[in-house]
């Protein structure tokens, strides 16, 4: 069994093992992070002593029901929220240090849930330029960055459109381009697909997967769609401010019962595999793709 796949109750989550490499400092490192929105009610923290590491180039999905603390966790990754207790380090920089907070935000870009509420400018290319403009990048260099970023999300032809005339998926791609233009190391999607229709979700996810694969961009994808988590390198499950399970999608989704108890579903195909396995068919209950189930049922 995969060493990183053992579920544990809130312990340290190691990055996937890379036997050939010497252990390097992970890109993002959370140590015993606790966050209370209300200082008077420390008994109900939104995050409760969370330990998490995200390695460079990884694609991590964080899943959990509403109020599980997954969005609070996301906002800790780029210093939009600071830990009440514990420590968050991004590439070795402590997010509580006001001197490096902008460097942290440049390295960890964030795409939010509502596509309309994160686009600042009235023209697509102007909006993509917003980040580099804030960083004080020189005018000609911003132009190249904007062009590159729009090409990377496949929105080049829309460069002079008005954002409100784009579809939800296109708006989110523009938002992603706006982050890419800042040359980040990690992209955090804070439920960025939850307000999109299925085709918009595919559009955004395919873009992000390609960026992860081809550009080596680290991705932290926060979602409540289990199918989306199924293609990640690693899934982290949150419940009431704690990490209750983590590992490869296969090991996490094999625990269907446990996930259902905290209000989560497994991907439909995994659920079907589970039912078939329970009915005595030769199907393993941890399958994630339709093809895998087909192969199991009709071996050629």
């Amino acid at each position: 069994m995969d060493a990183s796949g053992s579920p544990s109750g809130g312990g340290r989550v190691p990055p996937p093992e890379r036997p050939s490499e010497v252990r390097v400092e992970p890109l993002i490192c959370l140590e015993q992070v606790t966050h209370c929105y209300d200082a008077d009610r420390r008994d109900q923290p939104a995050l409760d002593a969370v330990d998490l590491e995200v390695a460079d180039g990884e694609f991590v999905a964080i899943v959990g029901a509403n109020g599980s603390g997954k969005s609070t966790l996301a906002k800790h990754l780029n210093a939009l929220l600071l830990p009440t207790e514990g420590e968050v380090r991004v590439a070795g920089l402590d997010t509580r240090d006001p001197a490096t907070v902008w460097e942290v935000r440049r390295m960890v870009g964030m795409v939010f849930q509502n596509p309309d509420n994160q686009i600042v400018a009235t023209v697509v290319e102007e909006d993509v330029a917003f980040g580099p403009e804030n960083l004080g990048v020189e005018s000609a260099a911003i132009r190249t960055r904007v062009k590159e970023a729009l090409a990377m999300v496949g929105m080049t032809e829309f460069h002079s459109r008005a954002p409100h005339l784009l579809s939800g998926g296109q708006k989110q791609r523009v938002a992603i381009a706006g982050i890419l233009a800042m040359r980040p190391r990690c992209l955090v999607l804070d439920e960025a697909t939850s307000m999109l229709d299925p085709s918009g979700r595919d559009e955004v996810l395919n873009t992000v997967r390609r960026l992860n694969r081809d550009e080596g961009l680290t991705v932290v994808h926060i979602t409540h769609f289990m199918e989306e988590a199924a293609t990640a390198d690693r899934v982290v499950v949150m419940d009431r401010g704690r990490i209750i399970a983590h590992g490869t999608p296969r090991t996490v989704f094999a625990q269907a019962r446990r996930l259902e108890r905290i209000g989560l579903d497994v991907p439909p195909i995994t659920a079907l595999a589970g039912i078939l396995a329970a009915a005595g068919l030769p199907v393993r209950p941890d399958l994630l793709a339709v093809e895998e189930v087909v192969d199991a049922l009709c071996p050629s």
């Binding site: 935000r105 994160q118 102007e126 804030n134 004080g136 020189e138």
Partner: peptide, 17 residues
Amino acid sequence: AMEARCYRGGEGRTRMK
């Protein structure tokens, strides 16, 4: 969202156009 994209007022800001 603006803060996440490093917006901190007009000081030190450049413009593309």
